[in-house]
Nucleic acid binder design. Structure first.
Lengths: 191, 191
DNA sequence: ACCTGAACACCGTTCAAGT
DNA sequence: ACCTGAACACCGTTCAAGT
């Protein structure tokens, strides 16, 4: 029955998923948990800290890539990278404002996001020069998060027209795939 | 003396530049302009609409690319693209939270941002397939805005240590340049 | 046409005091 | 240790009423 940090984060994820970031206030959270606002601050230092945990939980559902790949030739590592990036993209897509939340978390506490570590591991197995692993990771992350944000904002702008939403979604999903392939093509074979 | 939409936007840009997005409230703006909050809503429909204008003004300082390039060979178009992207990056860098503001504006009303049109024009002169101009534009925009956001958030996280700030700034600026070249390399020569 | 005054329904964060 | 109650200093938006 007692309030824990875990239940606070859980509830935050639920409110974000159902109502979006604008409705994810500390007071709304308190109401949802049947406590006073002040109670939350015993379990969480600030709203920003809470949002990092929320981002981590959103990405936690994404399956880890195996530590040691059986085939670590360029082609199969590339395939794993594609799968991972698409998985992150698809995981964030249905969660409103998830792009903002993850972008913030990745910038302030990247070590809290396991999916970022997975990305880095795969890029290390790829033919990326060691000095550029960080650059390549953030490049891919910006691509994913940027397209998620673009799609979510576009859907809001379009309104309720279902057909228009599907068109926009398909266009941006396709653009994302194209950009992803371009980037993977270019980061491996640097002089 | 009378309040105009222009002076409202100007003041908003100034407050954003000096104090950041958190301090850019309608009430703060009203105080700064010596009017009541309600007065702002005669000139501006909402805060979000105002922020689109702010983004447009931030990008307006960037020089337009000439409509008709003398040399439209791939190499010189590429050089123009590099220059334009770097110019946008450097223009946004000193303005706190400009990445958020521009990302929002680009997603909701891209036609309001002249720099986006310039980008599109240049990409049309590049060897990008017509169907992918939009994808390439948003790819470059995500790269720019993503790196600006990363840099600005990282600087906040680092705190006041000047030496550390310089190190982080240099690393991300360098990563940005690397990513930019990778993308330009890959978007032109699609099968 | 343009602005004031005042209200409505909210925020994040802190902290003495209770249990 | 964990939570309540209440306060502090704010938000964006609306709108009758004034000039």
């Amino acid at each position: 029955m007692a309030l824990t940090r875990d239940t606070v984060v859980d509830t935050a994820v639920r409110v974000l998923t159902q109502y979006g970031l604008a409705d994810l206030s500390m007071r709304r959270l308190a109401r949802e948990l049947d406590v006073q606002v002040g109670a939350l601050y015993w379990h969480v230092a600030s709203k920003q800290e809470l949002l990092v945990d929320v981002a981590a939980r959103l990405l936690a559902q994404i399956p880890d890539t195996p530590q040691h790949l059986e085939n670590d030739d360029a082609a199969s590592v590339r395939a794993h990278l594609l799968t991972l990036c698409r998985a992150i993209f698809e995981a964030l897509l249905p969660i409103p404002d998830s792009a903002d939340v993850v972008q913030w978390a990745a910038a302030t506490r990247p070590e809290a996001l396991r999916a970022v570590a997975s990305l880095q591991d795969l890029l290390t197995s790829f033919e990326v020069e060691p000095a550029r692993i960080g650059a390549a990771t953030s490049l891919l992350l910006h691509l994913i998060v940027g397209n998620v944000a673009e799609l979510q904002n576009a859907v809001i702008a379009v309104g309720e027209e279902q057909l228009e939403i599907r068109r926009v979604t398909e266009r941006i999903r396709d653009n994302f795939g194209w950009g992803l392939e371009r980037i993977l093509d270019s980061i491996a074979r640097t002089p």
